[in-house]
Computed example of a mutant assay.
Amino acid sequence: MKDDRSTHAEPSRDELADRLTEVFDLVGPLYRRVHRKVEQAAPIEGLSVGVRAVLDLLRTGGPMTVPQMGRAQALSRQFVQRMVNDAAAQGLVESIPNPAHRRSSLIRLTDPGLTAIGAVRDREHELLRKVGGDLTAGDVEACLRVLGAMHALFEDVDVD
Rank of each mutant, 00 (worst) to 15 (best):
G61N: 12
G61Q: 12
P63E: 10
P63L: 04
P63S: 07
P63F: 02
M64S: 12
M64Q: 12
M64G: 01
V66A: 12
V66K: 01
P67K: 03
P67Q: 04
M69P: 01
M69E: 04
G70S: 11
G70Q: 09
G70K: 09
G70T: 11
R71K: 13
R71V: 06
R71E: 03
A72L: 09
A72T: 13
Q73D: 04
Q73S: 15
A74L: 06
L75W: 03
L75Y: 08
S76G: 15
R77A: 06
F79W: 04
F79R: 13
V80E: 02
Q81C: 00
Q81V: 00
Q81S: 13
R82T: 15
R82Q: 14
M83D: 14
M83T: 14
V84H: 11
N85H: 13
D86F: 08
A87H: 07
A87C: 10
A88K: 12
A88N: 09
A88Y: 00
A88S: 15
A89M: 10
Q90D: 14
G91V: 06
G91K: 08
L92W: 06
V93I: 03
E94F: 00
E94L: 04
E94T: 05
E94K: 11
S95K: 08
S95Q: 12
S95L: 09
I96S: 08
I96N: 03
P97Y: 03
N98E: 03
N98H: 09
A100R: 09
H101Q: 09
H101R: 08
H101D: 15
R102L: 13
R102F: 02
R103V: 08
S104T: 11
S105L: 03
S105M: 04
S105Y: 00
L106F: 07
I107L: 02
I107G: 01
I107P: 01
R108C: 08
T110F: 01
T110M: 01
P112T: 06
P112S: 04
P112I: 05
P112C: 03
G113E: 06
G113M: 05
L114E: 11
L114G: 15
T115I: 09
T115S: 11
T115Q: 07
A116N: 02
A116V: 04
I117N: 08
I117G: 00
G118C: 03
G118S: 08
A119N: 11
A119S: 06
V120N: 03
R121Q: 13
D122Q: 13
D122S: 05
D122A: 14
R123H: 08
R123W: 07
E124H: 06
E124D: 05
E124I: 05
E124T: 03
E124V: 10
H125R: 11
H125L: 04
H125D: 02
H125Q: 08
H125I: 04
E126I: 00
E126P: 00
E126K: 05
L127T: 14
L127E: 06
L128H: 02
L128T: 12
L128F: 07
L128N: 03
R129I: 00
R129T: 09
R129P: 00
G133Q: 04
G133C: 02
D134Y: 02
D139I: 05
D139K: 02
D139V: 11
V140F: 12
A142E: 14
A142M: 10
A142R: 15
